[in-house]
Design a protein around this nucleic acid. Structure first.
Lengths: 170, 170
DNA sequence: TCCGAACCGTTGGACGTCCTAGTATATTTC
DNA sequence: GAAATATACTAGGACGTCCAACGGTTCGGA
């Protein structure tokens, strides 16, 4: 986007908050803003790696999810729940993946409301290659130390659980 | 979106990674995925609080930035750099904020290429109210402990610096 | 001086996300 | 068994993000 700034804009915002007498919430504000920015950076890296495969992160996530499902197949609603996105987002992704012949829709055998999404042979092959690329080019060089990763997993897991993402207290 | 899942889908993904022999990168993968999901949750909360003000987070961020600038005024390019978003995103936000009479465009006095964005009286009043709402309804109840906040700020600050966001080594 | 390079903002398009509304099928309730 | 309710998916639209391309302005070196 541009050259590095001389100063951290989020630290500046935190100082501005404190200067206005909002010191109580300045730190959480900074933490939340930092999460937003970090997500933006990571998403950019991921999409760059996936671009040669003709995939976006949303489509990759669906393919990866299917690749772990028995029979490479899931109901749309189940995919929506597991990916934690709106059902219409799944519809969107499936439309495009189906257009690229990476997945296929089929009717549920007993429930007429449900549509199943299944990985095609081509889709399974592509998701394997894309995963290898992400593993080596993003996850293996995440920019986080092992300690960072451990702390992030622990802190964010607690947050997500309290936010109602899942019940598992493990 | 839906009811809580019985199990943490990100922890499941991490186990799946390990089971496939990608144990080396399973933890960073989980940490990165957790950041993505956390951002999604936080953004949802923020937008819900801002909706009564007719603001989105992107527009709020621009208003807040201007409220800290001298004269409540900044060049578009400066806003783009500080908010760390693409120039077209600023154009988009300014278009809408200007339509709502919250900001105003003006010519730069000496550089004909530059457009300045300035907070209107109405804009300044609205951003104050919106900030009060965010402070009390989101940042003061962030779902993170003080320790969590401290760790997040430290870890993510290092990440952003290494990613080239800013040079300040402080 | 002047001419190419760099910079600034905008337009148009692709994409993902969510929301609302609508249709179809299942399940529950009486 | 029929009506009411719940669930599953999709269509259309609003919004933010990015990229590529474009016209206008400024700057720097020959």
């Amino acid at each position: 986007m541009g050259a590095p700034l001389p100063r951290d804009p989020i630290a500046d915002a935190q100082r501005n908050w404190e200067r206005r007498g909002w010191g109580e919430v300045a730190a959480p504000m900074a933490a939340i803003t930092a999460i937003m920015r970090t997500q933006q950076i990571l998403l950019g890296r991921i999409e760059e790696v996936l671009k040669p495969f003709g995939l976006t992160f949303a489509r990759y996530e669906l393919l990866a999810l299917l690749s772990f499902a028995r029979g490479g197949e899931l109901p749309m609603s189940r995919a929506s729940a597991l990916l934690q996105v709106h059902p219409t987002s799944v519809t969107n992704a499936v439309d495009r993946l189906q257009g690229a012949r990476l997945v296929q829709r089929s009717r549920h055998p007993t429930d007429g409301r449900t549509t199943l999404v299944r990985l095609t042979t081509e889709g399974r092959s592509l998701v394997q290659k894309a995963t290898a690329a992400l593993n080596s080019e993003v996850f293996a060089q995440s920019g986080f130390t092992d300690d960072d990763v451990e702390q992030l997993i622990r802190v964010l897991r607690g947050f997500r659980r309290r936010a109602g993402d899942f019940a598992d207290p493990t």
